[in-house]
Design a protein around this nucleic acid. Structure first.
Lengths: 148, 148
DNA sequence: CCTAGATTATTCGTACACAAACGAATATTT
DNA sequence: AAATATTCGTTTGTGTACGAATAATCTAGG
């Protein structure tokens, strides 16, 4: 009777991670407002706001996106006029990315919501549980042997 | 100096969930063997193995995939001969899904790896931490007010 | 019975996600 | 300097992810 129930999908870490990520994405979308930024677009703008100028691949590493994904995200942000691309005079392979005026205004106006989104995502947990969860999750998010 | 560092991307739940899910996917792929099943395809086969027969949308709800996503996953599994589709005589809208002989053999042979993949995903945590983490993650994976 | 509403599967469009291969450019080695 | 290797950004192909729209079908209420 238990022969084929030895493996319960609902208790597997991968399945739960996927569902938790789904739920977070839904919360993100409900709270990001009319800018209609996606989680990845938001992450790219946040990092760009911190660093002022970075190359495309470097920004990809900082936000955990591979080169192909980054290319699409940047293309969409650039087509909306939120970021600017210019060639690196010291390395003609590179594109230097920076926020446009609109991009800076957009992320400045929207970044407060970021903490609210995280709070709402973690709302099912108590305050102490949230700390523990983030601590453990951070360990699980670490890739082996890289990190810029 | 801290004016623009108030929001740290690396400590946000959404970013960490995304990275942890990325890491799990990589582990999954390294351990799934030559079947080359994806996490979603694996999940669909596992559920189908438990239930013998389900409609497509119902299986989607059980595995947390929307109808459009499910359609693609099922189409690929069917084209590989791992599952079979037949119309429901009691409801002509529905497709009844079931494992084919090859599908059953495939998932039977591969499901043992499932626990290993979870173990490897959680390996950075101690045994007691793993229990706590899965408990908290389960709470965060719960969508509000549904679940079939 | 019969219409209004819901459900099933499909399709379209957009956006990740990543392997693989590519040309151009830089870096390293001999 | 020449040959080799690496890095940068791009493109292609496959697979999620999901909103929105659709045709076919079922269900419920009048």
């Amino acid at each position: 009777m238990t022969s084929k129930e030895g493996y319960i999908l609902e208790t597997q870490a991968g399945h739960l991670l996927r569902r938790a990520h789904q739920r977070h994405s839904a919360i993100f979308q409900e709270n990001i407002g009319e800018s209609q930024l996606t989680p990845l677009q938001f992450a790219a703008l946040v990092k760009l706001r911190d660093l002022e100028e970075v190359s495309q691949n470097h920004l990809g590493r900082l936000t955990a996106m591979d080169a192909a994904t980054m290319q699409g995200v940047i293309k969409r942000l650039a087509s909306r006029g939120l970021i600017e691309r210019r060639p690196d005079p010291n390395d003609r392979r590179r594109l230097i990315l920076s926020l446009s005026a609109e991009g800076k205004a957009c992320i400045d106006a929207i970044i407060q919501n970021g903490s609210g989104i995280t709070a709402q995502t973690l709302a099912p947990l108590s305050s102490s549980e949230q700390k523990i969860f983030l601590d453990l999750l951070t360990k699980l998010a670490q890739m082996n042997g890289n990190g810029d």
